[in-house]
């Protein structure tokens, strides 16, 4: 009966650029003067996936530790989670296992996770190697790792496309084609071990 659209939740430490990533995805623009997020911000956008229109919800969460008890209650409704770190700040990468643990604890069982290392426009300040991110992703069975730049529009569209395709492949996502509105409900089937999309984008 539920008519909810698929939900992708963005999590990660404060100031890694989650809101800038969503803003770029939604408007195609970069907002240098982004204010910090309190609680959760909501965005909806249509995408073209293999010639079909898919509408997705993006829930952008506050990064501060103190807000976790609030944001946790939103994990349950998410179908996909994008875990974000800032590749110029190692501590934000070191928190990723903790964020994964949170998702595993409070999220749905078949939730799709992927990792993004934002601020790839500042490679001269890099503190996190892409190889290390790949190792971590492999260890936890994440869908993919991508390095992104909201500032320079690198890999932003790709992140959401990859996630949407995976959700479709797992058949938890019904397409908005000629006959909307469609109903969308959480799939309770067990997840097939190997994801249908390549594990990581380790192209470096």
């Amino acid at each position: 009966e539920s008519k909810t659209l698929p939900v992708i939740i963005l999590i990660g430490d404060s100031n890694v650029g989650k809101t800038c990533v969503v803003h770029r995805f939604k408007t195609g623009q970069y907002n240098e003067k982004q204010q910090n997020t309190i609680g959760v911000d909501f965005t909806v956008r249509s995408m073209d996936i293999d010639g079909k229109r898919v509408k997705i919800q993006v829930w952008d969460t506050a990064g501060q530790e103190r807000f976790r008890t609030i944001t946790q209650s939103y994990y349950r409704s998410a179908h996909g989670a994008i875990l974000a770190y800032d590749l110029t700040r190692k501590s934000t990468f070191e928190s990723i296992p903790h964020w994964i643990h949170e998702i595993e604890k409070y999220g749905a069982a078949n939730l799709v996770m992927m990792l993004i290392g934002n601020k790839s426009d500042s490679l001269d300040k890099r503190q996190v190697l892409f190889e290390d991110a790949c190792t971590l992703a492999e260890k936890h069975g994440l869908l993919a790792v991508l390095e992104t730049s909201a500032k320079e529009a690198q890999n932003i569209e790709e992140v959401f496309t990859l996630m949407a395709k995976e959700l479709i492949a797992r058949n938890t996502l019904q397409l908005h084609g000629e006959n909307p509105p469609n109903s969308f409900s959480l799939d309770s089937r067990p997840v097939i071990a190997s994801p249908s999309v390549e594990k990581t984008q380790c192209s470096c």
Binding site: S14, N15, E32, K33, Q34, Q35, N36
Partner: peptide, 8 residues
């Protein structure tokens, strides 16, 4: 970090 993100 937050100061610069307050009423930017």
């Amino acid at each position: 970090l937050d100061i610069s993100r307050t009423f930017p």
